[in-house]
Amino acid sequence: MQVHRPYTLHDALALMAATPTPTPIAGGTDLLVSWHHKPKEKLALLDLSQLGGELAAMRLTADTLELGALTTYWDVIASPEVSRAFPLLAEAARQVGAMQIQTRGTWAGNIGNGSPAADGVPVLMAYDATVVLQSTRGRREVQLDGYYTGYKKTVRLPDELIVAIQIPRRTRKAEWFEKVGARAAQTITKVGVAVVNDEKGWRVVANSVAPYVCRCRNLESALQKGQKFKSPEEIRDILKNDIAPINDMRSTAAYRETVLSRVLFYRLADKA
C-alpha cells in the first residue's frame, strides 16, 4: 500500500496522473469500512485532507453555492446560511449515518464513491448541481445528472479529481426529501427521494432503486404537464420506466417500488 499526502492541489493533480492511479481519500467514511478485509497490495491512496484552502471552502453567493471537495455534511448542518438557502442539503446531511459520520463524510466523496444508496446525491441532483473536475490537463464542469453511467461507473477520468460542487440558487415552488431506511438513523437507505420544483421545472431524484442515483424523467414530465394522481399505483406505473430496483439482503424490489410511489403520492398530494 502507498500513501501520498500532498499539500497543494497542484501536487495532488500531478500525483493523480501517476501509475498506479491513486484512490482519493478525504473523510474515509466509505473507504475505511471493513478496512482489514480489503486487499491493499495494489492500493495507492491520495490523501486530500491536507489540501485545505479552496477545497475546504464553502462559498454562498447571490446565484451559486459552491461546496469545496472537502466540505463535510457537518459543515452544511452547522451553517445557518447554507441550511436556509438549501434546506434539503441540511435535511439530507442529518440523515447520513449519525453525527460521527456527518463530521467526516464529504459531499464530494459521496458523489465519487458512486453508491446507488448515496444519501447526499439525490438532493444535490434535485438542486441541479454541477460537478467540477480537475486534472493536470485542465478543469471541466459536468452536470451531476449525467455523471453516472452505470453501477459505480462515472464520467470521471482516472486522473481527475472532484474539486468542487456548484449548486445554482433558484426560486423553488416545492422541495422535499424523504429517506426510508431500516431504522430512524444510522441506516443505509432502502429507498429515498428528493423532489424540487423550480423555475426550470420538476426534478425527481431517487436512490437505492437503480444501479445509480437517477432522475425519474417520466414522472417529471407527467408533473410538468400538471398531471394529478389518484393513487400510488398510478405513480408506480409511470415509475416503472424510470427505475430498476433489485432484491438484496436489505430489501426487495417490490418494496422499493411500492414505497417510492406511496411516498411520492402522499407528498405530492400534500405539497404539489
Binding site: 469500512v33 471493513s34 449519525a98 431500516a182 431504522r183 430512524a184 438513523a185 444510522q186 441506516t187 443505509i188 439482503m249 436489505r250
Partner: peptide
C-alpha cells in the same frame, strides 16, 4: 428489526450495517 438473512444455512448479512439493531432514535 432483526432479520437474519441465511445463505447456505449461514448468516449472510453478518455486519452491523446489514443486521439492524434498534438505536436510541427508534
Amino acid at each position: 428489526y432483526e432479520n437474519v438473512v441465511l445463505e447456505d444455512g449461514a448468516m449472510k448479512n453478518c455486519q452491523m450495517t446489514n443486521y439492524v439493531i434498534p438505536s436510541a432514535g427508534d
